[in-house]
Computed example of a mutant assay.
Amino acid sequence: MNSISAVTDPAAPKVLEAHGSAGDKLDFNDVYYAQYVTVQVPHYTGMARNHTIRVTWENPRHTYHSEVITVGTPGVINVPHCAHGSDR
Rank of each mutant, 00 (worst) to 15 (best):
H62A: 06
H62C: 09
E67Q: 12
M47Q: 15
V79I: 15
N2I: 02
S66K: 05
P80N: 06
T56S: 10
D9R: 10
R49W: 00
A18M: 01
A11V: 06
I4W: 00
Y33D: 13
G85Y: 02
T38R: 07
H19A: 06
Y44C: 12
Y33P: 00
Y32V: 11
D24V: 13
S21I: 11
N78C: 10
V7I: 10
N2S: 07
P60R: 11
V41D: 09
Q40M: 13
T38Q: 06
E17Y: 12
G75V: 14
Y32A: 09
G75Q: 11
V76D: 14
T73E: 03
S66E: 04
V7P: 00
G20C: 05
Y64K: 13
R49M: 02
H84G: 10
R88Q: 08
H43P: 09
V55Y: 04
P10L: 06
E67Y: 08
N78P: 14
V39N: 03
T73D: 08
E17K: 07
G85I: 07
V76T: 14
R54M: 12
D30P: 06
R88E: 11
M1D: 07
P74N: 01
H43R: 14
D87S: 10
P80L: 06
T52Q: 00
A18Y: 03
R61N: 14
P80G: 14
R49Q: 12
P42K: 01
V31R: 04
G85D: 04
Y32W: 09
H43E: 14
P42H: 01
N78A: 15
H51W: 03
H65I: 01
N50P: 04
T70H: 00
K14C: 10
T63N: 02
